[in-house]
Design a protein around this nucleic acid. Structure first.
Lengths: 341, 341
DNA sequence: CCGAAGATTGCAAGCGCTTGCGAAAGATGA
DNA sequence: TCATCTTTCGCAAGCGCTTGCAATCTTCGG
C-alpha cells in the first residue's frame, strides 16, 4: 500500500498541510522546507492519492473524449492528436465510444461523466441542445469537433467550400457529368456521427457556378463505408448517361468507388476521375486526389480549446480551410483528350 | 453542485450508511427501505461521487489501455472491441498512447497508473520484465495483447503458423521466388510496438517444408508503413532475379507493395501475387489476399481476461489461430500459365 | 529596543462515501 | 411468556488530501 502524506510529513518533520503545499508548489513555503519535503517524498516513493485530491478539490484533471466510432481512421487520428496535447497538459483521457443509438441515448440519459471528467471533447456527434445541456449540467466544459453549438467551443471545417473546391477541380479539368457520393446516416440512427450535408451543398454550388444544371440522379447518399461507395459507384455506372467523374464525401467512399472502377476495367484517371475527402492515411498510396482538412490539427486545436475553456477562457470557434491535394486520380475526361484523334 | 448521500438520507428518513448500502444493493437492507431510498435518490437526481467512493474503497473501476500508436487501424480496432466489453462490465477506459520512446520511458519511470486504474491492457508493447513489474507495483492487474509474459494474462496469435500458411498458399500456387516484407523497428526505438519475428520464421518454415532454399536477399525488414512497403517492393523489382510473389507482415506493407506494382504496370495477380497480414478494414476493397487474425476478437478476449483477473482469476493465455482469406491478389505465377502459348 | 508587517507553518474542518460493530426490533422456539 | 436468533439500521471512524485561518517566528524601521 502506497505511503500517505502523513508518512512524508513525519519523515520531513513537518505537518501534512506543509507537505501538501510543498509538493504542489503552492507559494508560502520556504524553499528549504520544500526541498526537504521533496526529498522525503522521493525516498518514500510517495505518490499523492488521486482519488483523495480529487475528492478534496473537486477537479479530476481528466477529459472525456466522446466519439461515435473509434475504428474509423478519422476519429482515431483526431483522438491521437488531441490526446497528445491533453496529456502534455496533465489531463487524463477517458475514452467513450457511442457506436449505437442505444449507447448514445444511455450515455446522455444518465450523468455518466459527472465526477469522472472536467470536460468533454465531442467528436462529430451532432449534439442536440438537450444533450449539450446534459453535459454542462454535469459540470463539463465541452469542446466540439465537426459541429457548432452556441456556448461551446468548437473547431470545424469549411466543408461547403471544400465540396465546392473538389467539384470545381473536376469542372476545371473539363468534366460536366459529375456524381456526388454523399454520406447519409441510416434512417433511425441517432448516431449523427457525420458532418452535415455541407459538402453536398458545396458540390451544388460549384455546378451552379459553372452553369451546369444539377442532376439529382447523380447525387448518392449512402453509409460511410468502402462497400457503400463501391455499390453506389456501380449504380452510377449503370446510368443511361453515366458520369465521367465523382466527388466522394469521404476517402473511404472514394476507395470503394476506385475498387468498382478498377473491377469494371475502367482506367483512373483515364476513363474516370475521382476525388475524395479526408486525405486518409492510405489516400497517398492509392494515388487518390482528395481534400485535406487537417485531421490531426482538428484534434489538436479542439484539445487546446477545451483546455482554454477549463482555464476559464470564453468559448471560441475555430474554422479550418480544407485544401485540395492533387494526386493521380483526376484528369480531363477522355472526350476532351480524344478531340484530335 | 450535486446532492450528497446526506441529502438523500434526510429525504428518505434514514442514515447515510443505509443510503449507501441501499443504492449499491448491499444485502441486509429491507426491500421496502431500499425502494424508499431509491425513490429519494431519484427525486434528487442523486449521483454518488466517484472520487469519494474511490477514495473509500480504493477501487477505481477504470482500466488503462496502453497502446503504441492509436492511429493504426489495428490498434483502434482492438481498443474499440476491448472498450465495448470493458464499459459493459462497468469499467471506464483510460487511454494512454506511448508513441515515442521518451513517452514510454517516462510512463514506466513514474507510477502513472497508481490510483488511476485497477488494471492495464497493454497492446503490442513488448514489455520488459521491469516494465511489467512496475505496473504490478502500482497495483495494476495486467493483460497483454500480442505478447506473452510470465504471470500476466495475454492473448496472442500463432503468428509463426500464420506466416507459414500465407507462404504455403503461394507455394501451392506454384511460386518459388517469394519475398517477405517484414516489420522492423527503427534502431534505437524502444517502442516495440511490433510483433516479434514470428511471421518471418513461419515464412522460412514454409520454404523449408517445400525444399526451397531461402534467399536472404528476399527478406526485407522495414518500418510498418505503406510507404515502407512501397519502397521495399520497388527494391525487390530491381533484383536480378526478382520474386514473383510477396508475403507482407502487415496489410499496410501489402498496400504499399500493391501501389508500387500497379505503378510499375504489373498486373496483380497476373504478374505478381501478394498476400498481406491483418485483414485490414480496406483489404477487401483492394482485393487483398491476407491472413485474418481476429483483430476485434483479440481486443474482446483481452478485455475479458483482464476483467477475470480483476475478479481474482489466475492469469491465463489465449492463443488465436490466424486464417487465410483468399481474395484477388494471388494466383499462379505467369511462368506456369504461359506453358501452353 | 519595541511594535508591526511579513513570511512560514500547523490546526482542524471538511470533501462524500464505505464499513465494522453494536443496538434496536421483530421473529422463533420451548 | 421469556430467552435467543435474525434481520435491519445507525454510529462513528476512517479513506488521504486541501485550505481558510490562526499561531509562531523573522525582519525592520524608528
Amino acid at each position: 500500500m502506497p505511503s500517505s502524506v502523513q508518512s512524508v510529513a513525519d519523515r520531513a518533520g513537518v505537518s501534512v498541510s506543509t507537505v501538501s503545499r510543498a509538493l504542489r508548489g503552492v507559494p508560502g513555503i520556504a524553499e528549504s522546507t520544500r526541498k526537504r519535503v521533496q526529498e522525503a517524498a522521493e525516498e518514500l516513493g510517495y505518490v499523492a492519492s488521486l482519488s483523495a485530491s480529487r475528492l478534496a478539490t473537486g477537479r479530476t484533471h481528466t477529459v472525456a473524449v466522446v466519439v461515435p466510432l473509434l475504428s474509423k481512421w478519422f476519429f482515431a487520428e483526431v483522438i491521437a492528436a488531441a490526446g497528445r496535447v491533453l496529456s502534455r497538459a496533465g489531463y487524463d483521457v477517458l475514452l467513450t465510444e457511442l457506436s449505437t443509438p442505444e449507447l448514445r441515448n444511455a450515455f446522455f440519459a444518465a450523468p455518466r461523466l459527472q465526477g469522472r471528467s472536467d470536460g468533454a471533447l465531442v467528436l462529430a456527434l451532432q449534439l442536440t441542445a438537450e444533450e449539450l445541456a446534459a453535459l454542462e449540467a454535469q459540470g463539463q466544459a465541452v469542446a466540439l469537433v465537426g459541429s457548432e453549438r452556441a456556448g461551446a467551443s468548437s473547431v470545424c471545417v469549411e466543408d461547403r467550400a471544400g465540396g465546392r473546391a473538389a467539384t470545381r477541380h473536376l469542372i476545371n479539368l473539363g468534366h460536366e457529368r459529375i456524381a456526388f457520393l454523399g454520406i447519409q446516416e441510416a434512417p433511425g440512427s441517432t448516431l449523427g456521427g457525420v458532418p452535415p450535408a455541407e459538402r453536398l451543398l458545396g458540390y451544388r454550388d460549384a455546378l451552379a457556378d459553372a452553369g451546369i444544371s444539377p442532376d439529382p440522379g447523380l447525387e448518392f447518399g449512402v453509409g460511410n463505408t468502402v462497400d457503400a461507395g463501391s455499390a453506389a459507384m456501380a449504380t452510377a455506372l449503370t446510368m443511361a448517361e453515366p458520369p465521367t467523374a465523382v466527388v466522394a464525401a469521404s476517402d473511404e467512399l472514394a476507395f470503394g468507388a476506385l475498387a468498382t472502377l478498377r473491377g469494371a476495367g475502367l482506367q483512373v484517371p483515364g476513363d474516370f476521375s475521382v476525388v475524395g475527402y479526408d486525405n486518409h492515411e492510405l489516400a497517398g498510396s492509392v494515388g487518390l486526389t482528395t481534400m485535406d482538412h487537417g485531421v490531426a490539427e482538428q484534434g489538436r486545436l479542439a484539445a487546446e480549446a477545451l483546455i482554454a475553456t477549463l482555464d476559464g477562457a470564453p468559448a471560441a470557434v475555430e474554422r479550418l480551410q480544407p485544401n485540395l491535394v492533387v494526386r493521380g486520380s483526376t484528369a480531363p475526361p477522355r472526350r476532351l483528350r480524344a478531340v484530335s484523334p
